[in-house]
């Protein structure tokens, strides 16, 4: 991904995208280490942050696209969808358990007691 032509800084990432940044006047410069053995130059903070965010998005999109491509080639789409549904259901169950009250209703406790004592319509 190219931010601006004629730049002085290039950042290479694993995704293969190339980010080119241009230092501007008036912005505080800092030393940026890309950590991948490429050029290490003075880059302004805001640019660096923007580059980082863009990189993150690009990586995310790239991964999603690769997954989608692989997905389309699979023959077990239905099973995969079923797995997804099951995962959502499990997540829902956990979320409900987190929010729902664990205690039984008072009537339920009484009813179990009545049932265990064998009371019923004829016992009145």
């Amino acid at each position: 991904m190219i931010l601006e032509r004629g730049s002085t800084t290039r950042l290479h990432r694993a995704s293969g995208a190339v980010i080119t940044v241009v230092p501007r006047r008036g912005w505080g410069n800092t030393v940026a280490h890309t950590g991948d053995g490429a050029e290490s130059e003075r880059v302004s903070d805001p640019v660096l942050i923007a580059a980082g965010a863009a990189d993150l998005v690009v990586e995310g999109v790239g991964t999603a696209l690769r997954r989608a491509g692989a997905l389309l080639g699979r023959s077990d789409l239905a099973a995969l969808a079923q797995d997804g549904r099951e995962e959502l259901r499990q997540r829902g169950r956990l979320a409900l358990r987190r929010h729902a009250r664990a205690t039984e209703s008072h009537m339920e406790l009484l009813a179990r007691r009545a049932a265990s004592r064998g009371t019923g319509p004829g016992d009145a």
Partner: peptide, 12 residues
């Protein structure tokens, strides 16, 4: 309430 309910409650 508890004595009354447990004594009589049941299906019908």
């Amino acid at each position: 309430s508890d004595l009354y309910m447990t004594r009589y409650m049941g299906p019908s």
